[in-house]
Amino acid sequence: MNIFRLAGDMTHLASVLVLLLKIHTIKSCAGVSLKTQELYALVFATRYLDIVTDFISVYNTVMKLIFLGSSFSIVWYIRHHRVVRRSYDKDQDTFRHYLLMIPCMLLALFVHEKFTFKEVMWTFSLYLEAVAILPQLVLLQRTRNIDNLTGQYVFLLGAYRGLYIFNWIYRYFTEPHFVHWITWIAGVVQTLLYADFFYYYFESWKNNVRLQLPA
């Protein structure tokens, strides 16, 4: 564990807590893409298959349970909670996210480290996480008015993988043979997808104006 990875995990944890806070406290999911939440639930379900077979540390297991529990409960809230689901904008959240799942699964079947079920599913989760934010970014462009909590959620979610890139750089220089192109490329693509959001997020923060993405 290094400071970059700890900061990344804490930033990731903060992003899910911000979203849970928003949904649970103000009972609203306005501006939140259910499609992205469903993709993230799938990302964690396919990435943490080893949670019952390989114990790494208490921290690792607890964090996996938090990410699995929070992502599935957020999906439940938006789909089934009698108050929250009324604020879900299904007419705007129209990204066909299975068009993201299929290419990621195909790519994982061809580009992976080992052709085993767990390894292919783990690789699928890496590719899927890289593009999982797309429905959310599309929804933000459409809804225009981005409330603070949703903006903070997207920012923290994007920042965590950026911190992981620093973690991989650190590990590359401190651990022999630490080379993982698949993970690195997926992580860089994921972070780059947030580039324009980060730009407008910092601009709105610097000029102290409401965050608005260009149409």
């Binding site: 080893d50 964090m63 973690n167 630490f178």
Partner: peptide, 10 residues
Amino acid sequence: SSNQDLKDEL
């Protein structure tokens, strides 16, 4: 280097 040393990451 197998992905094993990535499995301690989240």
